[in-house]
Design a binder for these strands. Structure first.
Lengths: 291, 291
DNA sequence: CGCAGAGTTGACGCAGATCAAGCGCGGTGG
DNA sequence: CCACCGCGCTTGATCTGCGTCAACTCTGCG
C-alpha cells in the first residue's frame, strides 16, 4: 500500500527519518514543497523487484527503511551483488534509459520514489537538488569502492569481518538513527545467507563455518542466524585486515602503531610493501597549481 | 613538464582528444574559456603518485592519455586496486577533504588538472558543469559496479577474460579514439602483471598460467607480455561468464538465445536461477506513479 | 658482464568449493 | 491436532583450484 503525500506539504518530508542524509532533503522550501508533491512512498516485501536487469527503469528515489540489493545474474546463473542500499541511500539511475542491474528488496523495505522523468526535470531546474544528488552519487562511489575492498579481501574470514563491520557501521542500533552515530555492539544482517554468499563470492556453507568459528573464538555471539553481538571488536577489525576502511574509522585506534599481522593470512599480493615512500620519490610536486 | 594553457583561450580544450567524453567539455563558451584558463596539463611517468591514501587531495581533473589506478593498501601490505581511470575519465574527489585511496599513474599518463577549490567554486556557479560532472560520476558508478562483477567472478580465468574484454572495450585500437567505437582484435594491457594480480585478487603466477592456457586453446595470441590478439572473441566472452556486462555489449549476439553454459565452471552461488519470473510475481506495479 | 626486475614454469599443500546428510521452523492440509 | 513438506541453516567428508615457494629465462641497464 502506498501513501501519497501531496497534502499537507512538507509535513511528510519534514518528519522523514532519513531527512538528514537523503538527497531529497533540500533547504529551499519551495523546492522541498515540490518534491513533497511528487514523492510517493512505497512499501516492498523482501524479494520484490523494482527493476529487472537491463530493463527500462523509471524510478529514482531514496531508501527510507530496510535494504535494497543491486545485483547481476550471469548466464550461468551465478548472482553477484554489487551494492546494498540502506536507509538514506539513493536508488535508481537518472539520465540513463536502463540500469544494468536488477534492484530488489533484500528485506521488507520502505521507499520514497520519484518518477525518473519528473525528477530529471526537477534536477535541471534546481541546481541545489542536482548538487545534493551529485554528492549522493559521490558517496555511493566511495561506498562502491569500499565494497570492492571487501570483495577483494583475501580469505573468507577477512571478507566476512569487513562485511559485518560495514553493516555495524551503517546500522547504528536502530534503523531510525541516521548513520554516523556510534556503532552498537549488535549486527543486524538484513539479507539472507544466500545473499551474503552472492555478495562475498563464497558459499553459504563456508559462511556458516566461518561465523561459527568466530563465535567459538568469542569474537562474536550468535543471537540468531541474522543477528550477532560483537564481543571483541578489536579482533574483528584485525581479522578484516583493513584497519582503515571507511566504516572502521569510528572503531579505529587513533594513530596507534600498526598491529603486527597477528593471525593475518599469508598475503596473496604482497606488492611493493616495502617500497612505500620509495617509488613515490618521483611524486609530482603540485603546490604551484594551488590558487 | 607542464603546459599552461591560459593563453589562446579555447584552443587547447577545443583540440583536446578527450573532448567528446570529458566532464570539462561544456557547451557554454564563457565557461569553457574559464575552464581553459584554470586547466593545467601534467605528464606523469608510470608509478608517480597524485594522492596518497587518505591524504588531503587538492586535485581534480581528467585523464587525457594513459591510465591511473586507484588503490588501497591494507595493513598487511596487500594492495587492492579499486579502479582504473582511462582517457576521458574524471579523477579526484570534489567536496571531500581526503580521498580514501591512493591515485597513481599505472603507465605514462597525461592529465588535465584543476585545483579542487577552484573547481568547486566553478561547479557552484555553473550548473552545466556540475551536471556534466554528475553524469561522469554516475558513469564511474556504473563502471565501479562492472568492476565488482569482474572481481566477483568465480574462477581466475573468468576474471581475466572479463578484464581483457573490459580493456578491449575501453581501448578501441588507439588511445586517441574515444571509447564507444568498434573494439579491435588487440588488447593493450596498460598495467603490469603485478597490478593485474592486485586488481583481480590473484597472483602473477596464476595469471601467467591462465593466459598461456588460453593461448594454448587459441583463444588469444600472446604478442608480448602486455599485448594480445583476440583470436576467438566468442569463446573469451563465454569464459568471462558475464555475457551481458556493459563492455561486452558491442560483441554481443543480439537477442540470440543464451549459450548453454558450455565449459562454464560449476557455479558457486547458483541462486534462484530457475525462479526468475517466479519470485518476481510480487513485483510492484508502479505504472500509476508515472506522471 | 653482472645485476635487477618482469615474466614463466614446476611441485606441493591448503583454504574453501562441492556433495551429502541432518536439524529446526513455519506453513499447509487432512 | 499432528504429519508432511519445503526452506534456511548447520555440519561432516571429500576433492580441487590456485596460492606458495622455488628455480629458471629473458630483457634492459649501468
Amino acid at each position: 500500500m502506498s501513501v501519497r503525500c501531496n497534502l499537507r506539504s512538507l509535513s511528510t518530508c519534514n518528519n522523514c527519518i532519513v531527512r538528514s542524509t537523503a538527497f531529497c532533503s533540500v533547504s529551499n522550501r519551495d523546492l522541498q514543497t515540490e518534491l513533497d508533491r511528487y514523492a510517493q512512498r512505497r512499501v516492498l516485501r523482501a524479494g520484490e523487484t523494482i527493476v529487472r536487469e537491463g530493463e527500462y527503469s523509471f524510478l529514482v528515489g531514496t531508501v527510507v527503511r530496510g535494504a535494497l540489493r543491486m545485483q547481476r545474474t550471469s548466464r550461468d546463473g551465478h548472482q553477484q551483488i554489487v551494492g546494498l542500499l540502506m536507509a538514506g541511500d539513493t536508488f535508481g539511475r537518472p539520465f540513463s534509459e536502463t540500469v544494468p542491474f536488477a534492484i530488489e528488496a533484500a528485506s521488507d523495505t520502505t521507499l520514497c520514489c520519484f518518477n525518473k522523468g519528473t525528477l530529471e526535470h526537477l534536477l535541471s531546474r534546481h541546481p541545489e537538488l542536482e548538487h545534493r544528488m551529485f554528492l549522493s552519487a559521490l558517496n555511493q562511489l566511495d561506498m562502491a569502492r569500499d565494497w570492492m575492498i571487501i570483495l577483494g579481501g583475501q580469505s573468507v574470514a577477512e571478507r566476512i569481518a569487513s562485511f559485518f563491520l560495514f553493516l555495524n557501521h551503517r546500522q547504528p542500533s536502530s534503523t531510525a538513527v541516521p548513520s554516523g552515530s556510534e556503532p552498537s555492539r549488535y549486527i543486524n544482517v538484513p539479507i539472507s545467507r544466500r545473499d551474503i554468499a552472492a555478495f562475498l563470492s563464497t558459499t553459504v556453507e563456508t559462511i556458516s563455518r566461518t561465523v561459527h568459528s568466530m563465535a567459538d573464538k568469542s569474537i562474536l555471539r550468535i543471537l540468531s542466524p541474522s543477528r550477532f553481538e560483537i564481543t571483541d571488536r578489536r579482533r574483528l577489525i584485525d581479522i578484516s585486515g583493513a584497519g582503515d576502511l571507511d566504516f572502521c574509522k569510528m572503531g579505529r585506534f587513533g594513530s596507534q602503531k600498526v598491529q603486527r599481522g597477528s593471525g593475518s593470512h599469508p598475503a596473496r599480493t604482497l606488492i611493493r610493501k616495502c617500497s612505500i615512500g620509495l617509488q613515490h620519490s618521483g611524486e609530482v610536486q603540485l603546490q604551484e597549481l594551488a590558487q
